[in-house]
Design a protein around this nucleic acid. Structure first.
Lengths: 330, 330
DNA sequence: TCAAAAGTGTTATCCTTACACCCATGT
DNA sequence: ACATGGGTGTAAGGATAACACTTTTGA
């Protein structure tokens, strides 16, 4: 094993690649988290706003991303956060995709827009659970898990139940942790669930990459596929947002300036895919002092008028990790 | 504002870039976290193991990274995790750096090697607090903060104390949060601290990029600089490792197979840069069941022989977030 | 007057923090 | 015997989880 001299700079053999920026832009419409799509390809697969990074046009990734979004969707972005950079867009290129050497940088962005109000009616939002339906556990466990996913994964597990992977977990254990029903279920494992389905060859993207299982036709489609690796980016965004919400007040980046506590809870439930306990949610919001009453009331809620609240920006400097605990089931 | 037709694919004008992979490889030597350096450049600045990504040679980033590390350092890597992708390596290229269009993907890796034992004596590890000395608060607040950083930042703050940045925080507030002494201090904000010093023009890297403050010579060097953006990657690695340690059992990736509880605590303290409370640390380790006694004892510790423990791999499947809480000061 | 949603009170339990003390070895 | 570090018990305080009930509006 040779070692280069101390001054060696590993720049020899530099390979030119293309860097693509993709945004998962999330907004809330009533009870549903929505994802902005920039259109669909010839096969009808949804595509996220995206485009190549040109360092001559934009100094940073984030500036390039904002430019692409402005051009393709005309939605104002608030919070923006880099997610992950994928060097492998699946194992094989698509038929109409000549250059396979694309590096894909995924971003999460949040928008205050309420897609249901249609203020910018032209921006086409879609329900994010249309793409990852097994992630919505708000009202009972979704049917697709018991009906399609677990039967197919049972066969996949049976082929090799006991060999541990790099993290020491067997197929049996991974399936139980990710799609099971007990305390070990974690809403933050959204990416792991998608990756497991990909690995088992049960999502359309696996077929595209030549890694489909024979079971894929038996089970039928699991959520709507997206172009390229966009559904993987969406799953990454969901996982990150669910985790981040618990220790940073990012949820307010999707709320209007004034909101009721119930609306806030509905949003937290929509993102995390779980029902929350009303009293404890309220107590936590109150004691953590992340919101303050505006003094106004809303009587558009059906029953007793609800007090309106606003986000207290001061918490950003008062506490290092002001988030919304989502630990309690309703 | 025009919108492309639904089927449009934003691939026109694809720009070739070079993708560079860089690894911050951490190991523990007694009481000190160490970082593997692959050498130094002509100016004496340390460089991390790194190299360009070639998709023809390696299917994934991680495989490429492991290949570069194998070639430059000969250290076995356990845990590997992607950190962040920087599209801007500082605002300006270095003098001897002809192609400015490099995208830098940073990685965190952990190694079981004890650099103090010198099993592989050729691998040159350095103390990571040599590069970021203000991060070590184990034994009182480091002198460099009171002596150099705060005086220089006071002048920087005085030039614009009250204008809020994108997150609504003023210079005054940021300095107090990041370098202050109260409860708001967070060990996980290591990257924010480095970025603040860069923004204020107080680190060598800022001078290199043409953004040095006149104060930089007055204050004198703040930690050892590294080549390119390597110190930024190190700060990112430190922040991520400190955060991750609290909810994932990554610390065991740096421990030998059997260890005493005191050694485990010393490691947690070394990484987090803070002293921990002995009894509470032990109780947490015990109740969380992340370790189990081997039955052996070590009498090389000076006093009463210490029981040896090993990591219980089973916790990975028992609990979704088994980490080491580091919330308690000693 | 009743449905619907807002909003509150109270208790058991567990975890965190903090205190101080005992134990087993080498020198 | 004593210095050195290993190892424990217990109680106060606070946060969390769980229970059900009252209040205010519109229809």
């Amino acid at each position: 094993m040779t070692r280069p001299p101390p001054d060696a700079r590993p720049r020899a053999g530099a390979i030119p690649l293309e860097v693509n920026l993709t945004a998962a832009i999330v907004a809330i419409a009533g009870d549903d988290p929505m994802i902005l799509v920039a259109g669909a390809d010839a096969a009808g697969q949804a595509i996220l706003p995206s485009g190549p990074f040109d360092p001559l046009a934009h100094r940073t990734f984030e500036m390039g991303l904002r430019a692409w979004v402005r051009e393709q969707a005309d939605v104002p972005l608030g919070y923006v956060e880099q997610l992950y950079t994928f060097g492998d867009r699946g194992r094989q290129a698509q038929a109409d995709d000549r250059d396979p050497h694309v590096v894909s940088v995924g971003y999460l962005a949040l928008s205050h827009l309420d897609p249901a109000q249609g203020g910018l009616d032209s921006a086409p939002f879609r329900r994010w659970y249309a793409f990852l339906p097994w992630e919505d556990r708000r009202d009972s466990k979704p049917a697709v898990i018991e009906g399609k996913i677990l039967p197919a994964l049972a066969k996949w597990t049976a082929r090799d139940p006991g060999t541990p992977n790099a993290y020491g977990l067997t197929r049996t254990e991974r399936v139980r942790m990710l799609f099971g029903d007990d305390q070990r279920y974690s809403d933050e494992a959204a990416l792991d669930r998608y990756q497991l389905l990909y690995e088992a060859g049960l999502v359309e993207e696996a077929r595209r990459d030549g890694r489909a299982s024979p079971l894929i036709d038996e089970a039928g489609p699991l959520g709507e596929p997206m172009r390229n690796d966009h559904r993987r980016i969406l799953a990454t965004a969901m996982a990150r947002l669910r985790a981040k919400m618990k220790y940073r007040p990012v949820i307010f980046e999707m709320m209007p300036p004034a909101f009721t506590l119930t609306a806030l809870q509905r949003t937290a439930e929509a993102i995390s895919g779980r029902r929350l306990h009303k009293q404890n949610f309220r107590r936590f919001v109150e004691t953590s002092a992340v919101v303050e009453p505006t003094g106004e009331f809303s009587n558009r809620t059906g029953g007793r008028p609800a007090a309106l609240f606003r986000f207290r920006r001061e918490v950003l400097q008062e506490r290092p990790a002001p988030g919304l605990r989502v630990g309690v089931r309703g």
